[in-house]
């Protein structure tokens, strides 16, 4: 799904042209293909905005890498002090739901996130653990709703394990990057809205550097700002062991 790609590292090659591909599956497949990168390190500021406008700040580092064709992500929080040292790894598993393991420094141990827990809020934000799921659910179906000179609007019906009933993505034809994603629940009520407000280009790739996820039911929102990034690093820069329990425990 678009959101998943967006949160992983969300890159699009600016060189990829808007082609005559007015077929939703083709658009999604192309988007996934052009957005795929081998590795990245990002420093991210997350701001949780409450209904009354109060703001709470989180800082974390996110490392992503493709290992044997599957995505792996590592997240480590550095601020605020109360959550500093909290780490998360998300491992894409071929043909299975992703594996998520959380390290809590107070407990000094890892916790496997099971089943429905993946639909829960990520560190109190409006993003859910599910949004970090990289799997391209084979049960998901895509429908092209409309098209104009600059964008495609595509509806995705995710698989039965998702907490979303429908996802509507507005995808830019210039770079295949979604600029807006609306999430609907099983009763087709709008649940969340993601907008990309700012992007940056590096080595011919586009990175969303400022995104906002709004929870339409609760009136809250979460801003993600990417402050630093390194893309397509040499393999040794992010060793595979980064995505292991042993690494989490050593860095707790």
């Amino acid at each position: 799904m678009m959101i998943r790609l967006l949160l992983s590292v969300c890159l699009a090659l600016t060189a990829s042209p808007a082609q005559a591909e007015d077929n939703a599956d083709t658009i999604i497949a192309t988007a996934q293909k052009v957005q795929r990168i081998e590795s990245a390190i990002q420093q991210i500021e997350m701001v949780l905005v409450s209904k009354n406008g109060a703001r709470r700040h989180r800082s974390f580092e996110m490392k992503t890498k493709r290992i044997d064709g599957l995505n792996a992500t590592y997240v480590r929080f550095s601020k605020p002090t109360d959550v500093a040292g909290t780490q998360l790894i998300v491992l894409e598993r071929s043909g299975k739901s992703d594996e998520q393991i959380l390290y809590l420094p107070a407990l000094k141990r890892t916790n496997r996130i099971a089943g429905r827990a993946k639909k829960g809020a990520f560190m109190g934000s409006d993003f859910s653990y599910e949004d970090f799921d990289f799997s391209d659910d084979p049960k998901a179906t895509h429908t092209l709703i409309s098209s104009n000179d600059t964008t495609w609007v595509i509806d995705t019906k995710p698989g039965p394990e998702s907490s979303y009933g429908r996802i509507r993505s507005t995808v830019s034809k210039s770079d295949h990057l979604p600029r807006q994603v609306e999430f609907f629940d099983a009763k087709d009520h709008a649940k969340k809205l993601l907008t990309i407000q700012q992007t940056a280009t590096q080595n011919g790739a586009v990175l969303p550097t400022h995104s906002v996820m709004k929870n339409l039911n609760r009136g809250t929102s979460t801003e993600l700002k990417v402050t630093e990034w390194q893309l397509n690093l040499p393999p040794d820069e992010i060793p595979n062991e980064t995505f292991t329990i042993g690494f989490l425990e050593r860095n707790g």
Partner: peptide
């Protein structure tokens, strides 16, 4: 045995 729902 632990159980988490919605992170809340």
């Amino acid at each position: 045995i632990d159980y988490t729902q919605s992170g809340r």
